[in-house]
Nucleic acid binder design. Sequence first.
DNA 1: CTGGAAGGTGCAATCGATTGTAGTGTCACG
DNA 2: CGTGACACTACAATCGATTGCACCTTCCAG
Lengths: 344, 344
Amino acid sequence: MADVTLKHIASSLGVNASTVSRALDPNKAHLVSEETVDRVRAAAKQLGYRGDRVAGALRRGVTGTVGVIVADLANPFIAPVIHGIAQSLAPRQMLPMVIETNDNASELESSLDHLLSRRVDAVICAGARFSNREVLEEAGRSTPVVVAVRGLPNSVLPQVLHDDRAGGAMAARHLLGFGHTRLAELRGPDDVGNFVSRHLGFQEACAEEALAVIDLPEVGERPIREAGEHLARLLIDVHGDAMPTAVFAHNDLMALGALSVFREHGLTCPTDFSIVGYNDSSTIDQVDPPLTSVIYPGIRVGRSAGEVALQLISDPTEPAPGALFPPRLAVRKSTSPPRRTHAT
Amino acid sequence: MADVTLKHIASSLGVNASTVSRALDPNKAHLVSEETVDRVRAAAKQLGYRGDRVAGALRRGVTGTVGVIVADLANPFIAPVIHGIAQSLAPRQMLPMVIETNDNASELESSLDHLLSRRVDAVICAGARFSNREVLEEAGRSTPVVVAVRGLPNSVLPQVLHDDRAGGAMAARHLLGFGHTRLAELRGPDDVGNFVSRHLGFQEACAEEALAVIDLPEVGERPIREAGEHLARLLIDVHGDAMPTAVFAHNDLMALGALSVFREHGLTCPTDFSIVGYNDSSTIDQVDPPLTSVIYPGIRVGRSAGEVALQLISDPTEPAPGALFPPRLAVRKSTSPPRRTHAT
DNA sequence: CTGGAAGGTGCAATCGATTGTAGTGTCACG
DNA sequence: CGTGACACTACAATCGATTGCACCTTCCAG
């Protein structure tokens, strides 16, 4: 009940607390006679000693925690990332402290502050917006900070990302390979790394073929299903006379939203239009039609981010590597060659 | 860089650290002259004082953290729960510390120990197996412990759950209402509260109609898609001559697995068989066919668990309430009346 | 027999914030 | 002028683990 401390063990054995501390620390046990070590261990077990990592943290200046900043935990796409982080931390007995920003740039600032006041050993920011770059870099000067998932262009911070630019390009080439010539894009917010990169990659690949993408300047500020529906309607309203035959949605949710709107308007997939999503969400291979999607390796990104953080913790002077995971495409039934409407 | 402490502020102002501490604490600021408070606040801001919650935690015995034990973070179904927990904690500036057990009963024990050594103010266990009951109750004697998501029958601990028994019954009645008479169940592990309750509820509702469910004693030890496939094959092998016309899967993943196996065997849904899933996972309404599924209100369960934890923290003597969320059913296209195969 | 090394242990300071108690100074009232 | 009340502030202990340093014993080599 009342928690057992080193002193309790010490006094029960008639030794000093410092001896107990050393005996219980594998790295220091050699400083203590074997006999004492045994007695201490026995007493510790018998009394149910558990240790107080808070006290240890204060004295040693190391908490064994890594702060993880995410935009929104409810977004299923972020769960694997946290899983990966937790996985890489577990062998060192370290734990993530997760904090949400509601994808709000200014909340991120206070979240960061909060984490730092808790003396996390490192911060992994998986929910950055461009405007957060300076705060994060500032924090990075005193505490290891890893940028993950959402990149920050031109930042000195180590970044662990999926190669969204290549992913966007891959989606484009897949569609172009089928012979599509009228392509459109359903874009996510334009101050978030992933979406900007996806956009860039997509545009570049189209430009290589001297193809201009149908321009839809609006972006889904929150890239959810409703945003996909909205943008799809916009597309129909504005380009109804010459609809794109291929659509690249910046994530699966938006793809699904668009899919249902197009369907409402009598268009069928993939006959009338092809669509590519992003993330390869968990059951997206079973929707109707099974969605072609760029695979997002969340667990690996998380694990890698955790590893970079650990490396930075153990040696903050050495510049950390960062990582960029190449995209893969899960090709399914939502993409096919365009129908030759005006042929013959 | 080198972090600013109370002492720094104190000496820069020529006052004592205790005064600074009081000036910065809204609840104690009245003990300090207004002028000093202002000077302290100014100096704190100017020096970039952030405070050290580790030191504060040691002294006050309160860390502002809640340990959250989950089986597997990668399981998308748990993300909303954590979101809900974090949401309820945020207004108090508290943070969750998430730890995974890999759904391993013995790992839970060490996870719990780990959390307690970090002096979390409370523990929310969202990944219990029946065999963990005693350890959790033991921990509950000294630290608030809330059981969430996965219930522990006959436990004294407060529990925040979805009413899975009612959920199972609801699934059954939905199918019975269509006139199905040969029902089967794809069960999850039988030492996990949710699945046992779902099973119970389902059986009870069938028993009310004097109907015996097709017995499939085997359970999916890990209730994932592969388990659904496996159990579906088993069903076909054993009861191929008199297949059930309605299947209740203990979660959506197993339902999808079964769906694809049945389909391989030439059966179509819902003509040849109806199927009900559980959780109403994020894109499950767009699979083919859109799956009828019991809605799992993860966010609300999480939020409620967080609230119960907070209440328990503020007054550990008062017995905590617990909560049981009623199920709702999302009816979609995967369920319909049975075809009258042998009719006239 | 002595000097010194090595092995064990204890002492006390430390991490930084918090808080009970004691001390100082001012004011007002008798 | 004395005395208590009040408003501030300082001092010092405390939370529990960790660790540099000093001390003691033992034992061996010279």
